[in-house]
């Protein structure tokens, strides 16, 4: 077992334990915070797979953006407005069966398939390559993603503005 294997199992352990806490925690705030370690572990796995750019993007978007949004949501609804949020586990037995089946299938595929193993390529400049692909080969998809984000942005601004207009009318 090399050092890299050890690091891989360390990250795998972090992901599994924290993901279990996300699902099983009674207090929703613990679920939200243990997502931090799940995202961190996934970023670590990406680094081991030589995908440094994706790892950093994973951290910047999921930890810096989405996780902060989730925690904000939980905090604003849970403690300030004094609304009790309860998390409970429903349908434990069926979910265990279904996830067991899915997990078993994955393990079966993993062990039965004759995987083709390629020599690991160490890419020197991932960012440059990704940038070149984004403005050449995947140009249309890239632009489309931009348009979708813009639409979402305008939509959220419209929703926020509408409320403001209504309150102004009430004040009048």
């Amino acid at each position: 077992m090399t050092t890299y294997d050890l690091i891989f199992y360390l990250f795998a352990l972090i992901i599994l334990v924290s993901a279990f806490i996300v699902v099983a925690a009674r207090n929703i705030i613990y679920s939200a915070f243990s997502l931090l370690f799940t995202f961190f572990g996934v970023a670590g796995i990406y680094v081991l797979l030589n995908a440094d750019f994706i790892a950093v993007v994973q951290v910047i978007i999921y930890v810096g953006g989405i996780l902060v949004l989730i925690i904000f949501g939980v905090m604003l609804t849970n403690k300030i407005t004094e609304v009790e949020i309860k998390t409970e586990s429903f349908q434990v037995l069926p979910s265990i069966i279904i996830s067991g089946i899915i997990g078993g299938t994955l393990v079966a595929i993993f062990t039965k398939t004759n995987w083709k193993v390629a020599e690991p390529q160490i890419l020197d400049k991932t960012v440059t390559e990704i940038g070149r692909f984004l403005v050449s080969h995947y140009m249309i998809l890239f632009e489309l993603a931009g348009i979708i984000l813009l639409v979402a942005l305008i939509g959220s601004v419209m929703i926020a503005r509408k409320e403001k207009l209504e309150t102004e009318e009430v004040e009048k």
Partner: peptide
């Protein structure tokens, strides 16, 4: 000596953001 230097620093600083929320809560 990673190629993503600045980008990486901006990313890991988001751990501090979550830590601040954790401390405040």
């Amino acid at each position: 000596n990673i190629n993503l230097g600045v980008f990486y620093i901006m990313a890991v600083s988001s751990f501090s953001v979550v830590g601040i929320l954790m401390a405040g809560w």
